[in-house]
């Protein structure tokens, strides 16, 4: 009697567990369906080429071209990578191969704290500290007369890249550190035995061996940077023009959504959802390339 009851229970619970595991499939399916179902018709109503390659965004006149925002997102992300990857990677190398245990006891929690700071706090910090500082630097004679950078603005591609570069540091550091730590000690020792210095062994033996881990760190960083919203809105200036240079403002896809969504109606609102769909496609592409890199890592 009791065995049968517990048997039924076993079977039922097994299915409950399986069903729970399928929730993530369901969630992804729902997200895809709802975003595409809402975004694609708009895309075709506006015209895919007009929407994706149009350079003018004037919702008041039903002109919806998001090329400036697509480029804006790409530029800001590239800028964040230029700032974040060298610092993050070198920090990871330091933590993995140079720092003593005592130093790591401080560094590790510091990196975790950096990851935990909410993006709205980052954005606020960027708005009240970074923007005025950069504005002040751009006003100096040195920048204007010697470097010939005139008319630079505090709210710019540069500021956004800098802030995002800081924000992706934890991702870059933790992921590359994990892969650096995983490199067998024998590689390093072999290099030392051949007469290389500690630094040379780390940079030319350990680092290349962790290549694919570093690559996935960069890809994850790209994903984080391109999807960041609240921080970018506060520092990027959000002009609807085509990006004009390092020290001029621009608008990303995410900020386009968050700035105008609360205020939009009808086709304008749908066009913003379509912007979200384009962003989502970018993210999916990044995810796919991440899995490919991981797959290669497994096979190697």
């Amino acid at each position: 009697m009791s065995t049968r009851a517990s048997n039924t229970k076993e079977v039922v619970m097994k299915w409950v567990f399986t069903a729970c595991a399928c929730i993530s499939i369901l969630a992804v399916a729902l997200i895809c369906i709802f975003l595409f179902a809402n975004g694609l018709p708009t895309l075709f109503k506006i015209g895919p080429l007009k929407f994706l390659l149009g350079t003018t965004w004037k919702p008041g006149n039903d002109i919806y071209g998001i090329l400036p925002m697509i480029l804006g997102s790409i530029y800001v992300t590239a800028g964040a990578i230029v700032v974040g990857v060298p610092i993050g990677l070198l920090t990871a190398i330091y933590m993995s191969r140079f720092a003593s245990k005592r130093i790591n006891k401080v560094l590790l929690p510091a990196v975790q704290l950096l990851a935990g700071i909410p993006s709205v706090v980052y954005g606020f910090f960027g708005m009240v500290v970074l923007v005025p500082s950069i504005q002040a630097v751009l006003k100096t004679d040195f920048v204007r007369k010697t470097l010939h950078i005139t008319n630079g603005k505090g709210m710019s591609l540069f500021t956004a890249s800098l802030l995002l570069g800081i924000m992706i540091l934890p991702t870059i550091i933790t992921v590359s550190k994990t892969s650096l730590d995983a490199v067998p000690q024998s590689y390093y020792e072999g290099s030392l035995a051949l007469g290389a210095t500690h630094e040379r062994s780390v940079f030319f033996t350990v680092l290349p061996a962790a290549k694919s881990g570093v690559l996935s760190a960069v890809i994850l960083g790209i994903g984080r940077a391109i999807g960041e919203t609240m921080a970018v809105v506060m520092v990027a200036g959000n002009q609807t023009w085509m990006p004009q240079g390092l020290f001029q403002g621009l608008r990303t896809m995410t900020s386009n959504i968050v700035i105008e969504m609360g205020y939009a109606a009808d086709l304008h609102r749908e066009a913003l959802i379509a912007t979200g769909v384009v962003l989502f496609v970018f993210i999916l592409l990044i995810n796919v390339s991440f899995s490919l890199v991981k797959e290669r890592e497994k096979n190697a």
Binding site: S24, I25, A27, V28, L30, I31, F34, L35, L220, G223, R224, I226, G227, E228, T229, T254, I257, V258, M261, I273, G276, L279, F280, I283, L284, I286, N287, F290, S291
Partner: peptide, 17 residues
Amino acid sequence: LTTETLQGIPSIVYGLF
């Protein structure tokens, strides 16, 4: 695969969804 995808989706897209 789907769990990894979920992890990569930015919060603004969750908001829209």
